[in-house]
Design a protein around this nucleic acid. Structure first.
Lengths: 100, 100
DNA sequence: TCCATGGTTCGACGAAGTTCGAACTTGCTG
DNA sequence: CAGCAAGTTCGAACTTCGTCGAACCATGGA
């Protein structure tokens, strides 16, 4: 079973998290997670991109400390690190929440 | 006298503004502006980068709707579009304010 | 009028990021 | 066991970004 590395929240920098959210696909993923308030398998995201690209975007979000991922059978379930994020970057998720 | 183009705030997207703040230099510039609560000439920013690079970063911030720039003699003074930003992206500036 | 100063623009360069197909791994299920 | 479905990894092609030096443009003063 694959395991994923998640950075400690205090090691996550503002530019890094901004960088991660600087892509419309990734913002869409975070919004999907916000609207569900639950974890989500990669392939469930409604985006017209290849598997490889999808995997990459989840990777970036994970390395930026935004999501937490774990294997569950053949799927990998991701969820927001909501509480930690709210503590480290208060207001960030609220910012993403709005559709605009 | 040079004039600058500033986008309408409703045309500024979240990924665009995130992209602009995804660079440590630009975050530093915004922090400097926040701490002064006044406008700032390009060359006053305490960053060890060339004139050209400096100009570029101000450009990016301007196009992302974050700062407003105007010529004053030979200098160009920039200031935060604080009120508009707070309205369009509430909590964004507060996020940048923290040193971490 | 000439020069110094503050910024801009241009072209170049390497670094980094996005995207994909293809091959591979892993776990479930018939 | 065979086959499928979900993800990962790799390499390639391409784009974008950050940085700089050099040349350039305005403005204000000597």
């Amino acid at each position: 079973m694959k395991t994923y590395h998640h950075p400690a929240m205090e090691d996550v920098t503002l530019p890094a998290v901004m960088q991660a959210l600087a892509d419309p696909c990734r913002v869409a993923i975070v919004r999907e997670l916000l609207s569900r308030d639950a974890s989500l398998a990669c392939h469930e995201v409604p985006l017209e991109i290849s598997k490889a690209t999808r995997s990459h975007h989840f990777d970036v979000l994970r390395q930026a400390g935004i999501i937490h991922t774990q294997s569950e059978g053949t799927r990998c379930m991701s969820s927001l690190r909501k509480k930690e994020l709210d503590e480290r970057f208060p207001g960030l998720l609220k910012l993403v929440e709005k559709e605009t």
